[in-house]
């Protein structure tokens, strides 16, 4: 025990300069996958060797919305659903800054759905990391647009009957240039996807399927976070380039992961610049 402490003093956590360690432990529950997404993001930054001073993270509200508070760059925790327009303002105000939006499914796809669609349409140079845990966890487990049928939640006490959203399909339809999906277990692949997305100019989306051990899996009796991870291990299938309309996630069925879209479109700033030149 004592030996460990002295070593801690000798060497700090490798993500120390990327994360606000003074705020640890974070608020996420045991077995939650948001920490994994942050871990992958931090690792990706490490790999890219970005100038962290020129990086900015914007989050909305929700469990994933708290990510901004733990990443040691200029970070903004904004209102519910409005992370993307806030980030748009930052990007257009200062195009030198790399802006990353990390938020949850409810925040980005439900209340912020319109901003998601329109930022993708404009192809604003943002990287969006959407942590999808199939539920509104911060408010206590309500049905989300991504909740599969017929999963139980507190506001669908008799089983969800609404058709769930398919985030990659929405992103593609709206015009995102890079769309990938991984689970919280595919840590290395997720990291490389985030690296790719960060490198790509334009609106790139990485969806991270993450366990919610507190609400989603408890109310549906799916065990704890580890059981969810084991489920991902057994049921995720890597299919790169799969057409996005095949990517719907059924309740406790296979999850197709991989990189689905990687295309070129002029970004908003490029089109704007070109327009002015004409």
């Amino acid at each position: 025990m004592e030996a460990i402490i002295t070593q801690q003093e000798a060497k700090r956590h490798p993500m120390d300069n990327l994360l606000r360690m003074d705020r640890m432990p974070h608020i996420w529950c045991p077995g939650c996958g948001i920490g994994n997404a942050v871990s992958a993001f931090a690792d990706a930054l490490d790999k890219l060797e970005y100038n962290l001073d020129k990086l900015c993270v914007v989050s909305g509200i929700g469990c994933t919305g708290r990510v901004a508070g733990y990443i040691k760059v200029d970070s903004f925790h904004t209102t519910h659903g409005r992370a993307i327009p806030f980030a748009t303002g930052i990007k257009l105000g200062n195009p030198d800054i790399k802006v990353v939006v990390i938020s949850g499914d409810g925040d980005l796809v439900s209340i912020g759905g319109n901003h998601f669609v329109h930022a993708a349409r404009r192809n604003i140079d943002l990287t969006v990391i959407c942590v999808n845990n199939f539920i509104y966890a911060m408010t206590g487990g309500q049905v989300a647009p991504t909740t599969p049928t017929p999963a139980y939640t507190t506001t669908s006490p008799f089983g969800n009957f609404e058709n769930p959203s398919n985030v990659p399909q929405l992103a593609e339809a709206a015009g995102a240039v890079y769309v990938a999906r991984w689970t919280a277990l595919h840590m290395r692949r997720l990291t490389y996807s985030i690296v790719d997305a960060l490198k790509k100019p334009g609106f790139s989306v990485v969806e991270v399927i993450s366990p919610c051990a507190m609400y989603y899996s408890r109310i549906n009796k799916l065990g704890d976070g580890l059981d969810m991870m084991k489920f991902y291990y057994d049921h995720s299938i890597i299919k790169h380039g799969e057409p996005t309309d095949h990517l719907e996630i059924d309740y406790q069925k296979e999850i197709i992961v991989g990189k689905f879209v990687d295309r070129e479109r002029p970004t908003y700033s490029e089109s704007m610049g070109k327009w002015f030149e004409d």
């Binding site: 432990p25 608020i27 996420w28 529950c29 045991p30 708290r66 966890a137 911060m138 507190m214």
Partner: peptide
């Protein structure tokens, strides 16, 4: 209670 479901 705090914002955390667990641990807060």
């Amino acid at each position: 209670f705090g914002p955390e479901a667990r641990g807060g």
